[in-house]
Amino acid sequence: MQIFVKTLTGKTITLEVEPSDTIENVKAKIQDKEGIPPDQQRLIFAGKQLEDGRTLSDYNIQKESTLHLVLR
């Protein structure tokens, strides 16, 4: 499924993921596309910060959901 990741600069990254993918996994995909190390990434969905060990389905993230990427 496709999800979108919006950065603070207003750029939107499109990722191909599975509901069973972990947040860690998603961060690795963002690193592949954008070169941002996962340890600098914070992903936010519905106002919650997403934890590395959880999966997209844990957070009920469905196709075409938009996550927000904050760098630390």
Rank of each mutant, 00 (worst) to 15 (best):
M1Y: 14
M1D: 05
Q2H: 14
Q2W: 08
Q2F: 14
I3S: 00
F4G: 04
F4Y: 12
F4K: 09
F4R: 06
F4I: 09
V5C: 02
K6S: 14
T7V: 06
T7M: 06
T7N: 03
T7W: 12
L8W: 08
L8E: 15
T9P: 08
T9F: 09
T9N: 05
T9L: 09
G10Y: 06
K11S: 06
K11T: 10
K11Q: 14
K11N: 09
K11Y: 13
T12M: 05
I13L: 11
T14I: 13
T14W: 07
T14G: 11
L15W: 01
E16D: 12
E16K: 15
E16R: 13
V17W: 03
E18W: 07
E18F: 13
E18H: 06
E18T: 08
P19D: 12
P19E: 14
P19S: 08
P19N: 06
S20N: 15
S20H: 12
S20A: 14
S20C: 02
S20Q: 15
S20M: 09
D21V: 07
D21Q: 05
D21A: 12
T22G: 04
T22P: 14
T22N: 05
I23M: 11
I23D: 00
I23K: 01
E24N: 07
E24S: 08
E24D: 04
N25R: 11
N25M: 13
V26M: 10
V26Q: 00
V26R: 00
V26I: 10
V26G: 00
K27F: 03
K27E: 01
K27P: 00
K27T: 03
K27M: 06
K27A: 02
A28K: 05
A28I: 08
A28G: 07
K29M: 15
K29L: 07
K29F: 04
K29Q: 11
I30R: 00
I30Q: 00
Q31N: 11
D32V: 11
D32T: 07
K33M: 09
K33S: 13
K33H: 14
K33R: 13
E34T: 09
E34Y: 10
G35W: 07
G35K: 09
I36M: 06
I36V: 11
P37K: 15
P37F: 13
P38M: 10
P38E: 14
P38Q: 10
P38H: 15
D39L: 13
D39G: 14
Q40C: 02
Q40G: 14
Q40M: 07
Q40W: 06
Q40Y: 11
Q41W: 05
Q41P: 02
Q41H: 05
Q41N: 03
Q41M: 12
R42Y: 15
R42P: 01
R42N: 08
L43G: 00
L43E: 00
L43P: 01
I44L: 14
I44H: 15
I44Q: 09
I44G: 07
I44N: 12
F45Q: 04
F45V: 06
F45K: 04
A46N: 11
A46Y: 08
A46G: 11
G47R: 10
G47A: 06
K48N: 13
K48D: 11
K48R: 12
Q49W: 12
Q49R: 06
Q49S: 12
L50K: 00
L50A: 02
L50M: 07
E51P: 04
G53P: 10
G53E: 12
G53H: 08
R54P: 08
R54Q: 05
R54M: 15
R54L: 14
R54T: 05
R54E: 05
R54I: 07
T55V: 08
T55D: 06
T55I: 12
L56E: 00
L56Q: 00
L56M: 07
S57K: 14
S57R: 08
S57V: 12
S57E: 05
S57A: 07
D58G: 05
D58P: 00
D58W: 04
D58M: 11
D58V: 07
Y59Q: 05
Y59M: 04
Y59H: 06
Y59F: 07
N60I: 05
N60P: 05
N60M: 09
N60Y: 11
I61T: 02
I61N: 00
I61Q: 00
I61E: 01
I61M: 04
Q62W: 14
Q62M: 14
K63E: 08
K63V: 04
K63Q: 09
K63S: 09
K63I: 13
E64Y: 10
E64N: 13
E64G: 06
S65V: 04
S65R: 03
S65M: 06
S65N: 07
S65I: 09
S65D: 04
T66H: 15
L67T: 02
H68P: 01
H68G: 04
H68S: 06
H68E: 09
L69T: 02
L69Q: 03
L69G: 01
L69I: 04
L69H: 01
L69D: 01
L69W: 01
V70H: 06
V70T: 08
V70Y: 04
L71N: 06
L71K: 12
L71Y: 08
L71M: 12
L71W: 04
L71Q: 12
R72K: 15
R72Q: 09
